[in-house]
């Protein structure tokens, strides 16, 4: 059993194999994404009832919440592949790591922007120094740091190792940052803008939310595979299998 697992692990780590498998998976993932997105959006925008307090503007959660969930999930994926890259020196893990950063930064940005758009009508302010908002903003800067460091180092293998170290330092720090910001907020300013007491969400609103969360997650996998494939081609450019691939495509 273990030997099958390790063999699978090593095969997955081989660039050629990964490129092929990812290519075969992509159409299926696109189909799944389209299905989830259409049903989720229909459920969220059409069938879900309007909120008794917030009216229709609550519907932004169908974008905001999945993006916020992913903003944290992507960092975890990034740190785990960073650890794999540092421990086993697997090139593929490095590429997954560096492909994660821009995607995670985008989701964080989306979560912040949609949050601000929702906050203006609901709280009466674009931005409040709420604990969650602040730690989300810090998370964006952590992502930007990873991207900045990767771009600053010329040698891409070195850059990936540097970024892997940074991602691991970040993952140790994220809980500390999160809780300290929460504490800072509760001690400093109390409730200037109280969040409405969140009622447990109605099932008709919950199902579309879960569908949208699924759609976002599949979209993350798609964009991760696309980016990693690009990164792979760029780095392996002089290799035989890339040449073969280009020739195959030219013949088509």
């Amino acid at each position: 059993m273990i030997s099958i697992l390790t063999r699978w692990f090593h095969r997955l780590a081989s660039p050629v194999w990964f490129y092929r498998i990812a290519g075969k998976l992509l159409p299926w993932l696109w189909a799944l994404f389209a299905l989830l997105l259409v049903t989720g959006l229909y459920g969220g925008l059409v069938t879900a009832p309007a909120d008794y307090q917030q009216g229709d503007s609550f519907r932004i959660i169908y974008v905001h919440v999945p993006a916020a969930w992913l903003s944290m999930f992507v960092y975890m994926v990034m740190a785990v592949s960073g650890a794999i890259a540092l421990i086993w020196r697997i090139k593929l893990a490095e590429m997954v790591l560096v492909s994660c950063a821009p995607i995670g930064a985008s989701f964080t940005f989306i979560a912040l922007v949609t949050g601000a758009l929702w906050g203006k009508p609901m709280w009466g302010a674009w931005w409040v120094w709420d604990a969650r908002l602040t730690s989300e903003l810090i998370l964006l800067f952590l992502y930007l740091g990873v991207i900045g460091l990767y771009n600053a180092i010329e040698d891409k293998r070195m850059a990936s190792r540097a970024v892997a170290i940074l991602a691991l330092v970040g993952i140790v720090n994220i809980p500390i940052i999160h809780y300290s910001v929460e504490w800072w907020n509760t001690l400093h300013q109390g409730a200037t803008v109280t969040k409405f007491d969140k009622p447990s969400i109605h099932i008709d609103m919950l199902i579309p939310l879960l569908l949208m969360a699924g759609a976002f997650k599949v979209f993350f996998v798609i964009s991760l595979l696309l980016r990693t494939r690009n990164e792979l081609l760029e780095r392996e450019l002089p290799r035989q299998w890339v040449k073969q691939l280009v020739e195959e495509n030219a013949n088509d």
């Binding site: 940074l166 330092v169 970040g170 720090n173 940052i177 504490w183």
Partner: peptide
């Protein structure tokens, strides 16, 4: 600054 300042924040807060 970009790398380090976010990590400094907990110390600043406490």
């Amino acid at each position: 600054a970009l790398l380090v300042l976010p990590l400094y924040m907990p110390v600043l807060i406490f």
